[in-house]
């Protein structure tokens, strides 16, 4: 692994809210105050009712695997050092479809997963989907940072 390389760190301004929630050990997404639509990826107004009233709320982190891939190639130096790994599309019970790292034990369509936000080696939050109750850090230790400020399982 190239020790100096890092995953992409660029995010939108709204992503700071995701980082904050992850630091608190919480799974917080935008919810529309008017129509209760859960929005992901984050944006500045509700895509459904167009209300200017999205608020950050704790939502159910459970979902199921819609599809997945095993990545063997990347244009990024950091990822070249940690290949291969799995990425899934997760249908969250609260509504949105989320792209997330996916644990090897969940490589099956329909698998029930819990999604957790953790900082990767760039310091920005990424989401990891794994069997409920399992430790996402274990399998993705080469991608996630070990410095977790708060562990929700404790």
């Amino acid at each position: 692994m190239n020790e100096h390389a890092s995953p992409p760190a660029a995010r939108s301004r709204l992503w700071q809210q995701i980082n904050q929630a992850a630091a608190e050990g919480l799974f917080r997404l935008q919810v529309c105050a008017a129509c209760k639509h859960v929005q992901y990826p984050p944006q500045e107004f509700c895509s459904q009712c167009l209300a200017d009233g999205l608020t950050w709320e704790n939502v159910n982190p459970l979902g199921k695997v819609l599809s997945w891939t095993t990545t063997h190639a990347s244009t990024n130096q950091f990822f070249k050092g940690v290949l291969p790994f799995h990425v899934g599309m997760i249908k969250l019970d609260c509504g949105p479809v989320m792209v997330a790292y996916l644990a090897a034990s969940c490589l099956q369509t329909g698998s029930i997963v819990q999604v957790t936000g953790r900082p990767d080696r760039s310091g920005q939050t990424v989401f990891v989907a794994a069997a409920p109750g399992s430790d996402p850090l274990r399998e993705f230790s080469n991608i996630l940072t070990k410095e977790v400020k708060h562990d929700p399982s404790q």
Binding site: P41, A73, T75, V126
Partner: peptide, 11 residues
């Protein structure tokens, strides 16, 4: 940028 590229930069 927020929700796909960070997962491997696979385009």
């Amino acid at each position: 940028t927020d929700a796909v590229f960070p997962y491997g930069a696979g385009g």
